[in-house]
């Protein structure tokens, strides 16, 4: 699903990623662990081009999204991202947070199609060969209603439907992060990227967020998770990458990697955190 080939990233003279090659298959849950400064967050952010890679390629659904000429916005719709600091839109209500992108993008696409159809109709008047019109299945109203319905369904799923009209500043960290997760889910992503989703949470809220991520994993969502929760990585991941100094030092199934690490650097790291 995502093929990463020799991905490199440097900030000025600082080389953060020094050539990463890996493949993330559909349905896989990849956990990335490693000491701080090892480049794991940067790697995750490169996956949806929040950081533009310096070189290398990222093939997502057959398209190299590391290429600057590609319209990255279209591909980002299919990659959900969850941040350490939640990053809910402070100027929107909870419902507004979830529906902003589906509604805006839905209406935008509709307008583009209508615009193109207008010209196709004119062209069809004068030419024998009829060009088919773009199919328009939903009206503007339907897009909005559907997005709202979907958002309420997702909110109900995490039991926060009564918070739909609240602003993010009134919520607890755990609630914010769960809403951030369903905000990404509202776009029906093919893969979810988690950037240390529980690191900014109070300890008693970690579980509710991890439980939600676990549910998604059980439903077969493809995910890439940067985490410091070793127990969680062991339980949920199907594969664990250990990164250090901008390289993947070791990758294996969680059972193997945690119980029988091969590389001395991995052993050292695990002995410190476990």
């Amino acid at each position: 699903m995502i093929d990463v080939i020799d991905l490199k990233k440097s900030f000025g003279s600082l080389e953060v990623l020094r050539g990463i090659t890996t493949t993330i298959k559909e349905g896989e849950k990849v956990a990335i662990i490693g000491p701080s400064g090892s480049g794991k967050s940067t790697f995750l952010r490169c996956l949806n081009c929040l950081e533009d890679p310096t070189s290398g390629s990222i093939i997502f659904e057959g398209v190299d999204i590391a290429d600057m000429k590609v319209d990255i916005n279209i591909h980002r719709r299919h990659m959900g991202m969850v941040f350490q600091q939640f990053n809910l839109f402070n100027n929107k209500t909870v419902l507004g947070n979830i529906t902003l992108a589906p509604v805006y993008l839905g209406i935008h696409d509709l307008r583009v199609k209508q615009f193109k159809n207008f010209f196709i109709r004119i062209k069809n008047l004068f030419s024998r060969k009829k060009t088919p019109l773009y199919e328009i299945t939903k009206t503007r109203r339907q897009i909005i209603d559907e997005a709202n319905e979907n958002a309420m369904r997702l909110l109900k799923r995490i039991g926060l439907e009564d918070k739909a009209d609240a602003y993010p500043s009134t919520l607890s960290g755990g609630q914010k992060q769960r809403i951030a997760i369903i905000r990404s889910l509202a776009m029906n992503p093919k893969v979810m990227l988690f950037d240390e989703p529980t690191s900014a949470l109070d300890p008693e809220m970690v579980k509710e967020v991890l439980d939600l991520i676990k549910q998604l994993a059980d439903e077969g969502m493809t995910m890439v998770i940067v985490t410091h929760e070793m127990g969680f990585a062991r339980e949920v991941a199907t594969r664990v990458l250990f990164m250090d100094e901008g390289r993947i030092v070791e990758e294996n199934t969680p059972q193997e990697l945690f119980t029988n690490p091969q590389h001395p650097r991995t052993k050292e790291f695990l002995s410190k955190v476990l």
Binding site: N73, R77, F83, F89, N90, Y104
Partner: peptide, 27 residues
């Protein structure tokens, strides 16, 4: 305005212009 706001808007697939108009500038 926290740069994370812009990042979050970009991450759901909104363009730079729309992210600024809908999320960053209102704040």
């Amino acid at each position: 305005v926290d740069p994370g706001q812009l990042e979050a808007a970009r991450a759901v697939g909104l363009s730079y212009r729309v992210s600024m108009m809908k999320v960053v500038i209102p704040q």
